[in-house]
């Protein structure tokens, strides 16, 4: 196995694992604002790693540039989309839950959460 293949495999495997981590975090985190962080995990590190792993496997062509464009696009749009969601949630009367939320049995539906899902 050449060095290029090895790097590509490592990128793909680590990227896939981090992708799963983000998905699990999305389910495990206690409130909306913490879930945003978990979602950011998949977009800021898993997506670049997977795309870099793909780029290392591809032949030298224009397609390489396109993958790079996708990568730049994801990284450039992610903060804007994340901020838009957080701001919309705040303005929609959705307060962050603070303090120690490690205990999963505390997960209870807020009244405001229920009302905003009826739209």
């Amino acid at each position: 196995m050449s060095l290029l293949e090895l790097t590509s495999t490592a990128c793909l495997v680590v990227g896939g694992a981090l992708c799963l981590t983000g998905g699990v975090g999305l389910l495990r985190m206690p409130d909306f604002f913490s879930r945003v962080h978990a979602a950011g995990l998949t977009e800021t590190i898993a997506a670049p790693l997977l795309l870099i792993g793909l780029m290392l496997q591809m032949d030298w062509s224009l397609d390489l540039f396109k993958v790079l464009m996708i990568l730049v696009l994801i990284l450039a749009t992610n903060p804007t989309a994340t901020h838009a969601m957080a701001k919309a949630a705040l303005h929609g009367g959705h307060q962050p839950r603070l303090g120690d939320l490690s205990n999963p049995s505390e997960q209870d539906g807020h009244a405001e959460e229920d009302s905003s899902s009826k739209a």
Binding site: G16, C19, G23, V36, G53, G92, S117, A119
Partner: peptide, 30 residues
């Protein structure tokens, strides 16, 4: 590559679970 695709698909399923579960509209959109 196959393993990575599998991981991405599992993550999509996890995201779908969150989308169905909610509880708020913002969670679904996220």
């Amino acid at each position: 590559l196959g393993a990575a695709i599998l991981a991405v698909m599992v993550t999509m399923v996890l995201a779908l679970i969150r989308a169905f579960e909610g509880p708020s509209a913002y969670d679904r959109m996220l």
